[in-house]
């Protein structure tokens, strides 16, 4: 027991102290927390429920735009924005925080409602139809956002300048924001997975027809899982817009080619359908990316494609799956070494 407390204590101290110890990379550390949130929220559907979505990035992007637009419209008139494009004037800390909080709250509402509406249609699809449909959804969202002038169309949208003099350093602020988000996501999900929700979505993953035949409210659970993803992604997106400072429809907001694929990859790399898998996968992937990406001189996206293929083909069970296959007892799985008396397969 003491042992366990020490382990958690070390983790907490490390998480809280990391940006202070390594101030040079605090933005990258914030990104690491974002990646963990990405992988965790993707795994609700992809790992635990067996619905592999390429479209979760939609909620990230929508959350980002909603927050940014509310921040903009609360404190700036259209003309002001027009003339100051690229450098929204300074606003004080209270105004900034008010705008951010209201914007994030609105993002949550919009994204969860959107998830419920989209889910009503799309979650009826099974397997590969669902995967391809969500792939289309993500790209459609980016293309549509790129054509709407109110949100800056293809040339993007600028978020308010972070008031450093009131709220301290931007890097620290967003590091702790994303840390709290990742931790809350982790705790909420591990709590949900232990309850009937977790059992039900696992049942849907293993055999949805059977789950229906047993009377499980499959539609409700699926919609709920999608809405929970949307909830956390809305919070992530809203803050990410402010961290980056500039929202491009297909490179930052609906970044299907980067974040959208990464979240799938990180969850698979760590091990789908486990609570620690996505966390480990995100950490490994992010560190690898930060270490090697810059040495690839523009070939990093080629490398990403190769990495996807390699992981999917050779390592589909991920790190946790590897550990489970080697040392099943370590993860609390029981194995029956005695041969069953009747292995009659019709």
């Amino acid at each position: 027991m003491i042992h366990r407390y020490i382990k958690w204590g070390v983790l907490i101290v490390l998480a809280l102290g990391a940006p202070v110890l390594m101030p040079a990379i605090k933005t990258q550390l914030a990104m690491l927390m974002l990646m963990i949130t990405f992988a965790l929220t993707w795994d609700i559907m992809g790992g635990q429920m067996g619905y592999n979505s390429f479209g979760n990035i939609v909620f990230f992007g929508v959350g980002m735009y909603v927050t940014a637009v509310i921040q903009r419209d609360m404190f700036f008139t259209a003309e002001e924005y027009e003339t100051m494009a690229g450098a929204l004037g300074a606003i004080d800390g209270t105004d900034y925080l008010t705008g951010l909080v209201i914007g994030l709250a609105a993002s949550i509402v919009v994204c969860v409602v959107l998830a419920a509406i989209l889910g009503a249609g799309i979650l009826k699809l099974r397997g590969h139809y669902f995967a391809i449909c969500t792939l289309g959804l993500g790209i459609a969202a980016a293309e549509i956002a790129g054509g709407i002038d109110y949100i800056g169309a293809g040339s993007g949208l600028v978020t308010p300048t972070f008031p450093n003099e009131y709220l301290g350093d931007r890097g620290y602020f967003f590091y702790y924001y994303f840390l709290v988000l990742a931790v809350v996501a982790f705790l909420v999900l591990s709590w949900l997975y232990r309850g009937q929700f977790g059992l039900a979505i696992n049942a849907i993953r293993d055999d949805e027809d059977k789950a229906e035949a047993m009377g499980i409210h499959t539609t409700r659970y699926k919609t709920m899982a999608w809405c929970i993803s949307a909830f956390f992604l809305a919070l992530a997106g809203g803050a990410m817009g402010n961290l980056v400072g500039f929202i491009d429809p297909s490179e930052v907001a609906f970044a299907g080619a980067t974040y959208g694929v990464w979240m799938v990859l990180m969850a698979i790399l760590g091990g789908k359908g486990t609570i620690w898998g996505p966390v480990i996968g995100a950490a490994v992937f992010h560190i690898m990316q930060e270490l090697f990406w810059t040495y690839l001189f523009g070939w990093q996206r080629v490398a990403l494609g190769a990495l996807i293929i390699a992981i999917v083909v050779f390592f589909p069970e991920g790190i946790m799956g590897f550990v489970r296959a080697r040392w099943p007892e370590l993860l609390g799985h029981k194995v029956d070494h005695q041969t069953p008396e009747s292995r009659i397969v019709p």
Binding site: L199, R205, G273
Partner: peptide, 14 residues
């Protein structure tokens, strides 16, 4: 048809 990747107890609980 059972839920293959869940334990027997979890199969029963759900």
């Amino acid at each position: 048809r059972v839920y293959g990747l869940m334990t027997c107890m979890d199969n029963m609980r759900i």
